[in-house]
Design a protein around this nucleic acid. Structure first.
Lengths: 347, 347
DNA sequence: GACCATCATCGATACGCATCGACCACCAGG
DNA sequence: CCTGGTGGTCGATGCGTATCGATGATGGTC
């Protein structure tokens, strides 16, 4: 026999096809005895339920589309952990992940939803105003957005709390005695893409600096090559001097270059200059010197995104996410070697 | 009306449902007039053919599974371009990409194929002996392997020609006057994973060095941190001296560290020491100094993998890939600043 | 002992499309 | 005028599952 169907299983188990189906879905009570016979038959035939038939009859595919920022000129670095975590999160709910690349744009989403290839969408790297959002919202399937658009329009959004992270970083710098903070901004390409986490981070830093009464020198944008970073440091050190200066580096990729540039001019991070970077804890610990960092763990965001998605998909799992809710994942600052308490603050 | 079906389209166009289907698939001739009416109706209703129904009736899903080395501790860096290129290659053939993460292992493949979620598989990062291969080969669907296993067993394999790349790199070093070549190996973790491109590369270098009568000093394994690389350089320079030494660095991630380490000890790459690295052309050109490199462009491999896949999927597209064929994509060596012709070779 | 729940199972049907055989109209050749 | 095509369309059927209503069996109640 070619590939076994649920009817074959039924015959072998001596039950009807519908009983096999109920064993599979658990939507009606099945006696222990019958269940065992059916399951044995399935094992014996190596039966796999046909996904197409299931989708057709059951109106759900158990596949989720991921709109990933591939193809475009993305800082590709960071997205892999997102994808990976989302994929395994979906698997825990017996769902699969279909990749939709960004070059397909909004019509890619319309296609996979229209054809009922997917039951739901996760849209990554959403910028401040993103044409995909309006389309996604009108598709009639659950959508989770990773990023914080200006106008969420009914779509639940999840992202890291960059503003809060920036504030915590400023706190840390002030804690170790800094009286001025310089912010080495994101590269122009990132800013152009209008991903507003940039402005959220900068805004958070500014607000906190103002509250604490320390000066904030934003330097932006900064490319990742050595020359740009040297130029940025020149500017910063010219204005603020070395004394009491804290550096805030939200651009993960720039971190190693900044460290090198500082040392090249005789400033030891942690001793002569304090520095807080934005990166994962793993990267921070592996760095030399170990970085004090604002941890932005993509896995946290992905996990929550998956949870939110299934609350939408199976409302029994708990209160569905309210429309348009923005969930910000709190960051964490970990002190390592690049910030050290210097002068004892007035106790 | 909820979502339109082909029957709705048929009614609106005044034809039968089967005619709509033939317009869609092109498997029977349709008059110009009828085709236009049907297409208009589809547009008007924003009709999308239901993928589940298509799969059920047509025995094909137009989805390809990608077994990606996610989840494991991979040198995650390199795989994104593969995934991206494969995804868009599939889209050009109106197919989609379903991600299967490596943690699911062989049973993940069995699942997506057994349930007929996918029509075919691409298996990435296949090592010398990979348990997934035997399973994949028995699944009864087209499979393309990226990597070169010891025992391809009927499966078409595609990979970069690391051996040839190594030989070309040795050639280049000898061309610019090197009389000894040191090979800074891969890190232990890469070697442990038994990805045999490591040994293919080393083997290729050894063979060519022997042919040319130059000494080859393999130093392995080399981690990517500065200390390990310094130790490796100590060993190499101790044995071979600076004079006439060429460095061969197959580990992309180690390249910047090696460059820095060399300069730290007063050796200018390209002048005092020659160096050929393995990386993409883009990375090589962006490096400072610009690297002479063996280009291993993942996109080439992905493209060929997709082509081979569709030759298997639609035999009309050309001769199907012969079973067990191993296709090696030739690399290219580009001379940049880290190799410069030194003493004029005897003309 | 007749009656009604409850539980477990069965039969039939629908899901939306691809495909096969049949059919019709039309035209060329004899 | 009849025959043999051929290009174009239609009806009917099947793909494998989920689901609904119905049925039989079982046990408890008055």
């Amino acid at each position: 026999m070619a590939v076994p169907t649920s009817r074959d299983v039924a015959k072998l188990a001596g039950v009807s096809q519908s009983t096999v189906s109920y064993v599979l879905t658990g939507k009606r009570p099945i006696s222990e005895e019958t269940r065992r016979r059916v399951e044995d038959a399935m094992t014996q035939l190596t039966f796999h339920p046909n996904a197409g038939a299931r989708a057709l009859a059951g109106q759900r595919t158990r596949v989720v589309g991921l709109m990933a920022p591939f193809g475009a000129s993305t800082h590709q670095q960071g997205i892999l952990p997102f994808v990976e975590t989302i994929a395994s999160g979906l698997r825990e709910h017996d769902h699969d992940l279909l990749l939709v690349t960004a070059d397909e744009g909004a019509e890619g989403m319309a296609r996979v939803v229209g054809r009922r290839i997917v039951d739901a969408l996760v849209v990554m790297e959403v910028g401040a105003r993103d044409e995909r959002l309006a389309v996604a919202a009108g598709l009639g399937v659950p959508v989770i957005v990773i990023g914080v658009p200006e106008e969420p329009g009914d779509l639940p959004c999840i992202d890291l709390d960059f503003a809060h992270g920036a504030a915590l970083a400023v706190d840390e710098l002030v804690d170790v005695g800094c009286t001025a903070v310089a912010l080495l901004g994101y590269s122009a390409v990132t800013t152009q893409r209008d991903l507003n986490y940039v402005s959220r981070f900068i805004g958070g830093a500014e607000r906190r600096a103002a509250e604490l009464g320390v000066t904030l020198h934003p330097v932006s944008p900064v490319e990742v090559d050595r020359a740009s970073i040297d130029a940025a440091l020149d500017a910063v050190l010219g204005v603020a001097g070395g004394e009491g200066l804290g550096l805030l580096v939200p651009n993960t990729e720039a971190l190693p270059v900044v460290l090198r540039a500082l040392r090249a001019r005789g400033l030891e991070p942690g001793a002569d200059v304090s520095l807080v970077g934005v990166c994962t804890d793993a990267e921070a610990a592996a760095s030399e010197p170990a970085l004090t960092n604002v941890s932005l763990e993509p896995r946290d965001v992905s996990r929550r995104a998956v949870e939110a998605l299934f609350r939408l998909l199976d409302p029994e799992l708990g209160a569905p996410v309210p429309d348009g809710a923005v969930e910000l994942v709190p960051p964490r600052v970990t002190r390592r070697d690049t910030t050290r308490p210097a002068r004892r603050p007035a106790a």
